[in-house]
Design a binder for these strands. Structure first.
Length: 121
DNA sequence: ATTCTAACA
DNA sequence: TGTTAGTA
């Protein structure tokens, strides 16, 4: 995972900050957590801590609600996206395996090397 | 001052 | 969803 992604997934924001950033009430934010739409961490004092990804997640939830979707609907959308991501990752790994296989066959040029062929003596 | 849980005139 | 009480 990249350094950038790690920062986005760091849970450091208290609910008050999240309220300002999302224009959601504390009640709504806690309610969405109750229904497993978001999963903030907890501090030692049992305070909720949100990450930037959580913020994005909450903003998406806000849009879905505005479009008239209920909690169950939103859950499904997120699960659908989850499956799509799995499928995407499978493809990536598939391509990787396929590429390596073609490289061994000596057909494809290795793009991780020089942009031009190296002359052999 | 903030946030948390639980509950509802 | 709002609001309020009693805490931590």
């Amino acid at each position: 995972m990249s350094e950038k992604e790690l920062r986005r997934s760091m849970a450091v924001l208290p609910i008050g900050t999240v309220m300002k950033l999302t224009s959601l009430t504390a009640r709504q934010i806690r309610y969405y957590e109750e229904n497993e739409l978001v999963f903030p961490d907890r501090s030692e004092g049992n305070r909720r801590l949100f990450s930037l990804n959580d913020i994005d997640r909450l903003l998406e939830i806000k849009d879905f609600i505005a479009e008239g979707l209920n909690i169950a609907d939103i859950k499904q959308r997120f699960e659908q996206r989850k499956e799509e991501l799995k499928r995407s990752i499978s493809d990536t790994q598939m391509r990787k395996i396929l590429r390596e296989e073609l490289l061994q066959t000596g057909r494809l040029s290795d793009d991780s090397g020089p942009a031009f062929p190296i002359k052999r003596v």
